[in-house]
């Protein structure tokens, strides 16, 4: 096996990992701050892809789709939080889980009714088509662009959470919501924004995935599983964990694809099992 192929495979793994990171981040943020396990995450990813496609076809530009759809679906996410999730705070963790699980069915069926179940083409924006020579092999320009966008999002999130007053409130709210209320912070507003942010990230993942995969109502099903695996490996609620675990899972999938391709999907579940056995709280999680 030559080095070029292994290097190329490593790079493919990192690029795939970037996609996994963007799908896992939203799930992780919502769980970390709100303690809600959002089972509609995959469906919202799918709705995001459709919204992106819709905006792109209205405006004739992929860029508008990429920019507007996550905001649109993020606002939709806030509405979900306000109307559906909010009454369930303080109840057992299963309640919002079941609610979002049901919501995912509603969203998938809704999209089937509006857009049909056949799948719709989402062409790669013309400025990002083609391949680029990395020295060890060729790689699609669009996928490199996705890695760049994910990197940018991660940096912005880190700055937002670590360097701003809002970030401070969010982090404090996750640690001790009662104390925040005592200090006079309207924590429900924070939660509303955080839920919207998580959903917006899911839908950004959907728009970014559109040109790589075909857009169809079931495209979110596998994404939900992947996002869960990544957040569990990284440690539930840990952002750093999600990022490291996403890249790790991407590389592990890619290396497995080289030596035992038929195991490429199952290997991430095996990895999760091993991590859970050795470190039940995940790589970066804290023990409860």
């Amino acid at each position: 096996m030559d080095t070029e192929l292994i290097l190329m495979q490593l790079f493919s793994g990192v690029a795939l990992g970037a996609i996994l990171v963007i799908t896992a981040l939203g799930l992780s943020i919502i769980f970390g701050m709100l303690g809600v396990v959002n089972f509609a995450h995959g469906a919202l990813f799918m709705v995001g892809a459709y919204a992106g496609l819709w905006v792109a076809s209205l405006t004739g530009s992929f860029w508008w789709g990429l920019l507007v759809a996550p905001i649109m679906i993020g606002v939709f996410g806030m509405a979900i939080e306000y109307v559906l999730i909010r009454p369930l705070y303080g109840r057992s963790i299963d309640d919002p889980l079941l609610l979002t699980f049901g919501l995912s069915y509603v969203l998938v069926e809704g999209v089937r009714i509006v857009f049909g179940s056949d799948g719709i083409p989402f062409p790669t924006p013309s400025s990002l088509t083609g391949v680029v020579d990395l020295g060890v092999g060729f790689f699609p320009i669009y996928r490199i662009f996705v890695v760049g966008v994910v990197f940018l999002v991660v940096v912005l999130l880190w700055l937002g959470l670590e360097k701003t007053k809002f970030g401070l409130i969010v982090r404090a709210g996750a640690r001790d919501p009662t104390m925040m209320k005592v200090l006079g912070v309207d924590i429900s507003k924070v939660w509303l924004l955080v839920f919207g942010l998580g959903v917006g990230l899911a839908s950004l993942g959907g728009v970014l995935s559109g040109p790589m995969r075909s857009v169809n109502p079931e495209m979110g099903a596998l994404v939900l599983a992947e996002a869960f695996v990544v957040t569990v490996i990284g440690g539930l609620g840990s952002l750093v964990g999600s990022i490291i675990a996403g890249l790790l899972v991407g590389v592990v999938i890619s290396m497995t694809a080289l030596f035992a391709p038929e195991m490429a999907t199952i290997v991430m579940f095996a990895l999760m099992a091993i991590v859970l056995l050795i470190r039940p709280q995940g790589l970066f999680g804290k023990l409860a």
Binding site: L16, N216, L222, P261
Partner: peptide, 30 residues
């Protein structure tokens, strides 16, 4: 490849390195 896979990027470098005249893809549906 696993049935129902959404991402095939990790198979591509190896397929390229085989230098085929024909890439024959035997799968169905999506």
């Amino acid at each position: 490849h696993p049935f129902g896979a959404a991402d095939y990027s990790t198979f591509m470098p190896r397929l390229r390195s085989m230098r085929p005249d024909i890439l024959c893809i035997s799968n169905f549906g999506r």
